[in-house]
Amino acid sequence: MKRRNIVFVTAILVLVAAACKKVINVDLNNADPHIVIEGEITNNPGPYQVRITHTVNFSSGNTYPPVSGATVTMTDSTVKRSFVLNETSPGTYTTNQLTGIPKHIYRLSVQTGGREYLATSTMPGTVALDSVTFAENTDFNGKKDINAVVNFRDPTGLGNYYQFTEVLNGRLIPNIFVFEDRLSDARYVEQPLYNDSTYLQKGDTLVLTMSCIDKNIYNYFFTLVNVTGNNNFQSATPANPVTNFNNGALGYFNAHTVNRTRIVVY
């Protein structure tokens, strides 16, 4: 009698806790292909790259057709000099003719398919990265993992925006980390860089880049997080990120400073 009860209760528990997560087929519309432009200029010597691709349907594979034959021009609006980029491989346009200077305003123009797409970005002043340290963190599942911690003093005055990228053992960690000083003006910031996808292990080589970015690029990456596939917090109103390109182009043009540190994880 007792054994039957246990089996009965277990069966109930199994039924109740049964799989609640599954892959489904959703019938999604196919939008017309849109152009996607990713461009940057930094205060490190070039070359600088602009990559142009197209959107694809959700049901297609993850290969994005490059756009060739576009006319790409990068302009330093502060000194009024323009440079035309060369297509060095399909969809990738490069220039080696200029070096970015902090506080200058840059413009990128892409002409393709009978339309012109323009974006403007201002390279901020440099902010020193004091150090990169490491801290152990216990995540929701009770697992301990190591995170890099960036330490720096935010300059007095609102309007400082930062982006951090990590390359672990030569591979870029696919994670977006942007930070603004709206709640931290003039503080000494010690910010761990949390990521869900890659585990840092002692002895790994980490190349960490701190970039000072302008407000439009901060807004772009902040809103990009809501529409990427690696996100746990789904917004009720997902919408395309606020791009600094006009005319319906997706993507961004990012003029930013670069502060790179190479360090071994401990």
Partner: peptide, 13 residues
């Protein structure tokens, strides 16, 4: 209604 890639990530349109 579509997808693309930026910053090494898949983004949805």
């Amino acid at each position: 209604s579509g997808k693309y890639q930026v910053a090494g990530l898949t983004a949805f349109y």
